[in-house]
Write a protein that binds this DNA or RNA. Sequence first.
DNA 1: GAGTAGATCCTCT
DNA 2: GAGGATCTACTCA
Length: 204
Amino acid sequence: MKKLTNRFYQRNDVLQVARELLGMVLVSEKEGKLTSGRIVEVEAYNGITDKASHAWGGRRTARNEVMYAEGGVCYVYLCYGIHHLFNVVTNTKEIPHAVLIRALEPLKGIPIMLQRTGKQKADHTLTRGPGNLSKALGIYIADSGRSLADTELYLADDEFRYHTDTIGSSPRIGVDYAGEDAWLPYRFFVKNNPCVSGAARYNR
DNA sequence: GAGTAGATCCTCT
DNA sequence: GAGGATCTACTCA
């Protein structure tokens, strides 16, 4: 399994990077505990022209500053006061593109994920949805800005690929406030995978 | 299966 | 002081 390199992250087409992230493996080795999962759902956030993005209109604050960094770092923030959302920053310096990782299929360290999430049994809800997957892998705000070349938290390629026929796209979830941009088909997911979040009718 | 309410707190206005 | 890139549990059907 090979770690993804900066060349992967720093390309300028955030939609393409988002699509290619499907099938990649997110690995967390925090606290000496190995947990990992295969990415089955993502959303692209297309910089300053995208009303759904935190960087819309060039907004730049202490919170989203890391979106303006070079691709290959992560952006983590707290949503609704409860959930940590994990993003991958792409493109080059000063271009605030990012991909939100929305769901994983658990691979390794499932007992640890159960412990972290307080769930009783391993099922498809373990890493379903951005809030859940961060919890299961032990990702917190303190990780924001961390390089994905790090050894504790990184993305890797094990050469697994989903066939293009099995990948669907849809508008992004939970961004109704973004007006017309809420309709952009920037969400990509693996069809018929139980780990994918959102209502069933959005996942065909 | 569909719809709704409540939790909960950081961030920006 | 308002609101959010969410989740769960609950209701009704």
